[in-house]
Computed example of a mutant assay.
Amino acid sequence: MKQSEQSAQQALPSVWTRPERRRRDQPALSREQIVATALELLDSEGIDALSMRKLGARLGAGAASLYTHVANKDELIELAVDEVYGEVELPEAGGAADGEWRAAAAQCAHGLRAAFLRHPWIASVLGEAGLSHLGPNMLRMSEAMLGVFEDAGFPLEEADQAVNTLSAYVIGAATSEAAWLTLLTRSGRSEQEWVEHLWPAAERAVEPYPRLRRLYATRRAQDAEGARGDAFGTGLDSVLDGLATRLRG
């Protein structure tokens, strides 16, 4: 490898920018096993519980076996994040060419939100997940969504902007929801119990603000989980409406 290539890799520390390490003998663990167990640990105990030592204990393996596949905790998080993206069902190639691009985009958006809410720890690591856009599952999703918008009639550059706009909305909304779900888990209460417990303080806080006071009053008896889903759907419709307008223009 040329020195310039080595320097570039050192400047971009990521599991996706270095060759996977190889051993002459067959390692007892695979990267897939390591990542699957890391996901179990993250889902059950949260991001603060993740460590190479604790993960090794769950796998019944020493650190050397882990480091064959993963250089450090940061790389492990990159792999876990990409695994979450791999749970999203992607639209079939060419499926949006018949004008159903909006349904295909909405399907992917709802799938990504659902994946984030199944793994709420992701809200605390996305900004630290390194070069997550280079992960294989993320690349497959990006390629599929580019196809959706390009088949709909967007030029490739505008299709990329459409994908970025949609992703920004979904990730922003879903990470906020995931952070909320993490708070609920720590409280030990159901979502509806927590909302009802919080409501009197919220009403006192908005008392000086007439618009917020009216808004809160309309939401007093809402089902909390259902309201979150409705709000996400309304926001998604607004994003897709905007993209449809650009497409017609």
Score class of each variant (00 low, 15 high):
residue 36 A to G: 02
residue 37 T to E: 15
residue 37 T to L: 04
residue 40 E to I: 05
residue 41 L to C: 10
residue 41 L to S: 12
residue 42 L to D: 01
residue 42 L to H: 04
residue 48 D to S: 15
residue 49 A to Y: 10
residue 49 A to R: 13
residue 50 L to S: 13
residue 51 S to I: 11
residue 51 S to P: 11
residue 52 M to G: 06
residue 53 R to V: 14
residue 55 L to D: 06
residue 55 L to K: 09
residue 56 G to L: 11
residue 57 A to F: 09
residue 57 A to S: 11
residue 57 A to T: 12
residue 58 R to M: 10
residue 59 L to E: 11
residue 60 G to K: 08
residue 61 A to C: 07
residue 61 A to D: 03
residue 62 G to A: 14
residue 62 G to L: 06
residue 63 A to K: 14
residue 65 S to M: 09
residue 65 S to K: 12
residue 67 Y to I: 10
residue 68 T to Y: 08
residue 69 H to L: 09
residue 69 H to T: 08
residue 70 V to C: 08
residue 70 V to E: 05
residue 72 N to G: 11
residue 75 E to S: 10
residue 76 L to R: 07
residue 78 E to F: 05
residue 78 E to V: 04
residue 81 V to D: 03
residue 81 V to N: 04
residue 82 D to H: 08
residue 83 E to N: 07
residue 87 E to C: 06
residue 89 E to P: 02
residue 89 E to R: 12
residue 90 L to R: 12
residue 92 E to N: 04
residue 94 G to T: 06
residue 95 G to L: 01
residue 96 A to P: 00
residue 97 A to Q: 14
residue 100 E to N: 14
residue 100 E to L: 13
residue 100 E to Y: 02
residue 100 E to T: 15
residue 101 W to D: 04
residue 101 W to I: 06
residue 102 R to S: 11
residue 104 A to H: 05
residue 106 A to Y: 05
residue 108 C to N: 02
residue 108 C to M: 08
residue 108 C to V: 06
residue 108 C to A: 15
residue 109 A to P: 02
residue 110 H to P: 00
residue 113 R to A: 08
residue 113 R to T: 03
residue 115 A to D: 03
residue 117 L to F: 04
residue 117 L to I: 01
residue 119 H to R: 14
residue 120 P to Y: 10
residue 120 P to S: 10
residue 121 W to M: 03
residue 122 I to N: 03
residue 124 S to E: 14
residue 124 S to N: 06
residue 124 S to T: 09
residue 124 S to V: 06
residue 125 V to D: 13
residue 126 L to C: 10
residue 127 G to C: 12
residue 127 G to W: 11
residue 128 E to V: 05
residue 128 E to L: 14
residue 128 E to M: 11
residue 130 G to C: 09
residue 131 L to R: 08
residue 131 L to K: 05
residue 131 L to W: 12
residue 131 L to Y: 15
residue 131 L to Q: 12
residue 134 L to R: 07
residue 135 G to Y: 00
residue 135 G to W: 00
residue 136 P to K: 03
residue 136 P to E: 05
residue 136 P to D: 07
residue 137 N to C: 08
residue 137 N to P: 01
residue 140 R to W: 03
residue 144 A to E: 04
residue 147 G to A: 10
residue 148 V to A: 05
residue 149 F to H: 00
residue 149 F to D: 00
residue 150 E to G: 03
residue 150 E to T: 14
residue 151 D to A: 04
residue 151 D to E: 12
residue 152 A to C: 09
residue 152 A to I: 01
residue 152 A to Q: 02
residue 153 G to H: 08
residue 153 G to C: 10
residue 154 F to R: 02
residue 154 F to A: 01
residue 155 P to N: 15
residue 155 P to E: 15
residue 157 E to C: 10
residue 160 D to S: 14
residue 160 D to Y: 02
residue 161 Q to M: 15
residue 163 V to L: 11
residue 164 N to M: 14
residue 165 T to S: 13
residue 165 T to A: 13
residue 165 T to D: 00
residue 166 L to R: 00
residue 167 S to D: 06
residue 169 Y to G: 03
residue 169 Y to S: 08
residue 169 Y to V: 04
residue 170 V to I: 13
residue 171 I to N: 01
residue 171 I to F: 03
residue 171 I to L: 14
residue 173 A to C: 12
residue 174 A to D: 01
residue 174 A to M: 09
